[in-house]
Structure formats: structure tokens, C-alpha cells
Design a protein around this nucleic acid. Structure first.
Lengths: 162, 162
DNA sequence: CAGAGTGTTCAGTAATTTCTGAACATACGG
DNA sequence: CCGTATGTTCAGAAATTACTGAACACTCTG
């Protein structure tokens, strides 16, 4: 098997993982193309060809990736085709999108706490849950700060293991 | 509307959120019951009644929650029914289960890196992705340590906002 | 402004996931 | 032990989700 074939296998594998993590199937496969392509930017046609999918499904996948900020439309280079590429901080964005989930969990917990007496065992459980997710939510910005400091500095050091 | 009804609404809301986050529907609803019930422990029959679901689906939901360690079977208190309850650190467990996803992403990235030349733009993208998830994976244990320190100390301070 | 190349939308269909119901297993109680 | 209450499994039904294909819209080009 050629390297190229292995690459697309790895890409589909990644897409599967993303799908299990809650991402829509075609969006995940499309994202994988953006990651594994050997070009700087990609057009819808190229994605259609690579995934052997319909224009319709690719169109909506691109739309959703744009919406969540994982890819961006390139300023049209005079061509008739739209070009897209993976955004710089796509992975941090993907991670951050979990915040919405955490927020929702917090709200659900708060709603439950508001309607239970403190003697109710549920009150305790809900409070524990609430505290945990509140903690998480507070830690994430710090975490991303640390990441940006580690990856962005003007003297990019070598990350590889010894 | 009574408080009790509001509570179950909040519970179903939470279940929906969990489902969007990738959890199976009935497992999510069952987990919500464990969280919002006013009892110390719950039996399958009570869940069936609360969710108006079939014995079969509740049985498999309980099984999967047990498998991932979110609930535990209580030492039978002489009764014929099995009793279950939410485990102490359920939320941390749920959060930690994301590690598997991160691991898979790392592997996919590594597989792609291995088959691309460093001149290939994909090589760069994959390396960035790999570095990010490696960073994340390294931070999570620290994060949970901090949580346990904050929540477990013998002098449990007041978490509420001023 | 007509024609060709792209992109988008959406109704219908295909595939997948999820739930149910009933048969089967298990264990307690008398 | 037998009967009953409870739990589990699994094939099929129901519901949901995802994809396609074709009609429509837009935009550049000559």
C-alpha cells in the first residue's frame, strides 16, 4: 500500500473518532480532508472527489465547519472556485467548543439546585456536579493561555521528545 | 408547575445535552435520573417508571453506565431488587473519558505524520495538531489533581460566590 | 447578456440508531 | 424445590439521522 493510501486511511480513522465524539459524519470526514491534503487550500470539488460524496452533503459540511470556525474561506484568488483552508487555531477552537456543553451542564445543575431543598440528596449531588463544571469552565482559559505561550513564542523551541 | 415537575424537566434537559455530546440517549436519561432522584439509591423499576421506558432499554442503559464507571451497584440490602447509585467522582470520570478521544486523535495525527514528507503542508498541520493534543493530554492529570485538592480537603470551604 | 462552471437548497430515500416486547434466565421466599 | 418477582437478551419495529440527486441560484467570461 502506498503512503498516500495510508494517509487517507488515517484520515478516515480520525473522522470516525470525531464522529464518535459527537461531530456529524460528513463534517468530520471533510475536516479530515482539510487536515490531510497536500495542498495549501482546497475546493469543494476536490473534497467531493476525495470523499466520493455528493455536492450537497459536502456543501453543508463546509457550511457547518465555517460556522464553528474550524475552516475559513480564502480571499478569492481570481478563480471561480471558492478555496478553503483549515484555520490556524482549529484544534483549540474544537476544544473550546466543548465549553458550550459544559455551560449547558452547569445550567441544568443550577436549575435542579434551585428547586430542591438542601435536605434532598439530589441537592448535594447537583451541587457537587455544579462545582465541578464551574471549576472546569474556569480552568479552560488558563489552559489555552498556557498552550499559546508554549506554541507561539518567537523562539519556537523543539517540542519533540528526546 | 410544581418543583418536582420542574426538576424532571431540568433532568431531561441535561439528558439532551449529554446526548448531543455523544452519549446514548437512554443512558443519558438514566444518568439524569440518578442525579435528580430524591432517594439515596435507585432500582431499575424506579427508572422504568420515571422514564416510561421499557425494561430492556433501561437494562442496557444501566449496563453501559456501570461499564464506564458512572454508577455502581450497591451491596444488596437483603432486597430482591438491585440498587444502584451515582458514583462519588462520576463527573470527573465522565470528563476523563474524553481522554480516549484525545488519544485517538493523537494516533491519527501520528499515523499521518509518519507517511508525509516534511515539505508536505499536511506534515505541518498534522504536527500542530499532534502537539496540541499531546499538550492537552499532559495537562488533564494536573487539572484533576487541582480539582481533588480543591474539593476534598478536610476543611471543606464554602464554594459559593459572594 | 448568454453560456458555462460552481455552489446551495431541499424533498425523498437510504442507512443507522434506538426502543420495545416477549421469551428466557436468575434468585429469593415460602 | 416451586412460584414469583426481577433482570437480561435479542429480533424486529419505529424513529431518527444522514445522504443523494436534481432543480435552482449565483458569478465570472467572453
Amino acid at each position: 500500500m502506498t503512503d498516500r493510501q495510508e494517509q487517507w486511511l488515517a484520515a478516515e480513522q480520525l473522522a470516525l473518532t470525531l464522529t464518535e465524539g459527537g461531530m456529524q459524519r460528513m463534517a468530520a470526514r471533510t475536516l479530515a480532508v482539510f487536515l490531510f491534503t497536500d495542498r495549501e487550500s482546497v475546493t469543494a470539488g476536490e473534497i467531493i472527489e476525495q470523499l466520493e460524496a455528493s455536492a450537497g452533503s459536502v456543501s453543508s459540511a463546509i457550511k457547518s465547519l465555517l460556522t464553528v470556525g474550524l475552516i475559513e474561506r480564502l480571499p478569492a484568488p481570481g478563480s471561480r472556485r471558492e478555496h478553503y483552508q483549515l484555520r490556524e487555531n482549529a484544534w483549540a477552537t474544537l476544544f473550546t467548543s466543548q465549553n458550550a456543553v459544559i455551560q449547558a451542564m452547569l445550567q441544568a445543575a443550577a436549575a435542579g439546585i434551585a428547586t430542591t431543598a438542601s435536605s434532598d440528596p439530589a441537592h448535594q449531588r447537583l451541587t457537587q456536579m455544579h462545582d465541578f463544571y464551574e471549576f472546569l469552565l474556569g480552568e479552560i482559559p488558563t489552559l489555552l493561555d498556557r498552550w499559546h505561550q508554549q506554541s507561539e513564542p518567537s523562539t519556537p523551541r523543539d517540542h519533540r521528545r528526546a
